[in-house]
Nucleic acid binder design. Structure first.
Lengths: 204, 204, 204, 204
DNA sequence: GATGAATGAGCGTTCATTCAT
DNA sequence: GATGAATGAACGCTCATTCAT
């Protein structure tokens, strides 16, 4: 292992520390209210150094989004692959989504914004993330359809309904304190949607 | 009609023209990327004039939100009051929501952002709009529950699911061209949710 | 008495009410922090009307200074003319100066500023006021010199010393509470200066 | 000498160059008519750089005042400490004051303004400078009183009279050309005041 | 004549980006 | 490579002045 590798390792380390600092701040305060200097400070480096790793603030923002959504997609895919049947796989996948909502709720609010204002490429990336996520859920639902448990409706609709409904966990203010429990919200959402497209006579 | 009315009318006119110009631009480019000068220009007035009507950019933004959401709430309430049964009232209400999404899709994306960054008061206002909207849908669902057609579940969950699911009409990119039709999306969403909480044996 | 006279009277009235409002505000907040709108409001007229009487803010400021200093000069001259001897006349004159300092202390601080920044003409006016005032005091002192009570020194020096020393009444902060009494300050100042130039052997 | 010292030195240098440029301009044109951009230009730096050293225009103004008055107080104290007797010490102190009046006459006019309009803290600072200056002169006069040469009057009055009378050197316009000589004005002022409070029979 | 709505030049301040060290 | 001092374009907001009514 020579100097270059050390350099490469340090680069990787620095890169990640900037991404994480930036993610934290963009998430908390939004794009415009986060200053490059703050990001550098939180990452423990000099202001100029950020520009050694990212060409501009927009670029950094883009990379933060890519980094975070990539992690999400990996976790989501893994969860959607585990489980003895489609119901369990669906449950696992949505658990991941809800966990991300909970842990990085602001980050996901960040994602929701219309980032065409920031960058057309970024917008396309985010649409793509949504398409992939939806496709995973659609595939799960199609399993249920093939198994004859679910009606063979256009799966894109219930898939998106499930994904959008997970956003309910973000609206604490809309629940009475004792009703609010992300886990049971998830179960109810899944129940309602699956029940809504269940073949009559088939059981929960 | 005397001078005062003329003055009041002109003021009202100007006020609305600024609100509209600002709504248009905030919607298209977001809060931070919209310049006061642009708003003035689009409204066909001088930069200083905007400040005769609004104390600051934040105030203007807040008023735009209030103006638009108030209009929405009025329309939404009216629609939710018309119809021969709860199913029709629900259909009417969601039609309004979807129409707003379609006509002002960007504006509604605007609403979604975490505006705590901009103003705490604004955030509270938006939470309140959400609460009122949800309550209207809950009331409709409770009619169905009283009628014995829907299971007596916590109505807040299906109510929010319906509202969040209307956002599907915003994601054209996720539909194949021929599948995308806001009206049928709405019908499917309502069907799925109502079906999902229907008392077994009761028919659509 | 025709319409014109009425108009002229109203004009005069308005003129004075603006001057007074402006004097009040310039005095309290300085030139730059006083807004034309505030002046109009305090004068009980419309903003545009001020411009019927004064071409600009600077012009108004100039006129305020002229108005106030003219009043001062009139009072000062009258006082300096009354009294059985030069000592009493000096006392009377300085009483007027001190009264103005007390009543319009801020206004006089206003005068002290270097108004070359505002207007060269204004500066010349103020120098002239100072010259006239000093000349009046010099004349009084020269009486005492002619009477053989005061040494025939250049009267401009003690005259200005007397005038400048009256400013002491503005510095309340520099006196212990019980020492501060404008009347006795005045007496002490006069005593010290007159004593300082008294012909030896002559009595107070 | 390491990097830090170089940095510190350069910072110190820049700091002083800004203070000097600002002092020059504030002095010549007043607070409100001096633009930050002009200050930067005169200091030979960019506009933004000024804000690396001073948080705001007010802060800069305050620091200019502090910087200049601190220098003055140092010089004034030193001068007031040198001299074989109180008369000489008084003479030395007032020479410093007059020199400052002459060299920075506009700056001292600046000081006179009622800066409560700009900042309450600044006003307090200036009152304090006045108090310190007056105290130094009072102490000198009290020497003369203890020595039995001066009457034991309240020393604050003659002390302030001396200080205020030094302002005479600012009013060139009030003197005929051949009468104007700061040095002899100073001597006459001191003579008159000291004579005015001299114990009868004691000699000049 | 009186008004006050409209104006826009002007300024203080911010912050992404650069570049000399 | 790393730094942070320096920069200046950009923008929100003010207010003296104008002018249509």
């Amino acid at each position: 292992m020579g100097k270059e590798d050390i350099g490469t390792d340090r680069k990787r380390e620095r890169y990640e520390s900037i991404i994480k600092a930036a993610g934290e701040l963009f998430t908390r305060k939004g794009f415009h209210d986060t200053k490059m200097e703050e990001i550098a400070e939180l990452a423990g480096i000099g202001k100029g150094t950020v520009y050694e790793y990212f060409r501009s603030k927009k670029d950094l923002f883009f990379d933060v989004i890519k980094y975070c959504t990539s992690n999400f997609l990996d976790d989501f895919k893994s969860a959607a692959a585990k489980g003895k049947d489609y119901r369990e796989r669906l449950d696992n996948a949505l658990s991941v989504l809800i966990r991300y909502f909970q842990e990085s709720s602001n980050f996901f609010k960040l994602l929701i914004k219309d980032h065409r204002e920031i960058d057309e490429k970024l917008y396309e990336w985010l649409v793509n993330v949504k398409i992939i996520t939806a496709k995973i859920v659609q595939d799960i639902l199609e399993e249920g359809m093939k198994a004859g448990e679910l009606k063979p409706v256009m799966p894109v609709i219930p898939a998106l309904m499930l994904l959008e409904s997970c956003r309910l966990v973000l609206f604490r203010e809309l629940f009475k304190e004792d009703e609010y429990d992300p886990e049971s919200i998830k179960v109810m959402v899944i129940d309602i949607v699956l029940n809504g497209i269940r073949v009559n006579g088939s059981r929960t």
